[in-house]
């Protein structure tokens, strides 16, 4: 279970949030650009530090301003899929997925078996030798997800995972993504602008405005918030 109760002064406003997510549940974060969605993911991942508050995962404090705890991002065990996918351009598809295992000094045979399993599942084993810079957007998205899942994270963070894809690919990837997240069974936060993502992939949703949750509820209820979100008409 992820518990977040933090405060962070951003450039234009204060990010002030309190939220809990159970194992296997997916929270969809929606809101305008610059409302603090990505900042929240970075704070939870440890890439940025809150001014005060507490973040805990499965009862273990990742950040606690009172106790002076701030676990570095490499020790948090969080899988993060970045909006740009952030694949290492100088490495092959295989090396990108194997990166998190090599960091952990896992034996090469185990790395090989795990990478094969994940790349097979994503249908990418045939392109394992291709450079990450030379593949399509959909493939990049699958690799970024496989790279985040292979380390068996205790929390998944996805920043607009479908925004770089065209509409047809989005529909396919949305289903795939949902299945992968469900199979993983950990708490998950997905940032999105698209209401279709919320309804299909989310269990519940929060609408952020200037760093604060202004609306929250079940994913299905989001249709009634409608305005300002993409894909309202399609639903």
């Amino acid at each position: 279970m992820l518990e977040v109760n933090i405060k962070k002064g951003l450039r234009d406003f204060d990010l002030c949030l309190k939220l809990d997510i159970d194992r296997g549940r997916t929270l969809m974060l929606v809101g305008d650009n610059g409302c603090g969605k990505t900042s929240l993911l970075n704070l939870v991942a440890g890439l940025d530090t809150p001014d005060e508050g507490r973040i805990s995962l499965d009862g273990r404090a990742l950040f606690d301003s009172e106790k002076g705890i701030n676990i570095p991002p490499e020790s948090r065990g969080i899988g993060y899929v970045f909006q740009s996918y952030a694949l290492f351009p100088h490495m092959s598809v295989y090396d990108n997925v194997a990166f998190g295992l090599r960091v952990r000094n896992m034996p090469a045979s185990e790395i090989d078996a795990l990478v094969k399993e994940h790349l097979d599942r994503a249908g990418l084993w045939d392109i394992r030798k291709a450079k990450a810079a030379d593949i399509s957007g959909g493939q990049k998205q699958r690799i970024a997800l496989a790279r985040a899942l292979i380390i068996e994270p205790r929390l998944l963070l996805l920043d607009e995972p479908l925004s770089a894809l065209d509409v047809r690919k989005q529909a396919i990837m949305r289903r795939e993504l949902k299945e992968s997240i469900r199979a993983c069974g950990v708490p998950c936060i997905i940032v999105t602008h698209d209401l279709r993502d919320v309804v299909i992939m989310g269990d519940f949703a929060c609408l952020l405005e200037r760093g604060k949750v202004v609306l929250h509820g079940k994913a299905e209820e989001v249709i009634s918030w409608g305005s300002g979100l993409d894909g309202v008409d399609d639903i």
Partner: peptide, 24 residues
């Protein structure tokens, strides 16, 4: 974001510097 990705995957600052930033 490449640096951040490496960190979240478990790499220390030094490992990230040697294996990600330096080659690029």
């Amino acid at each position: 974001s490449l640096e951040n990705a490496a960190r979240t995957l478990g790499a220390t600052r030094f490992y990230t510097f040697i294996h990600v930033i330096l080659p690029i």
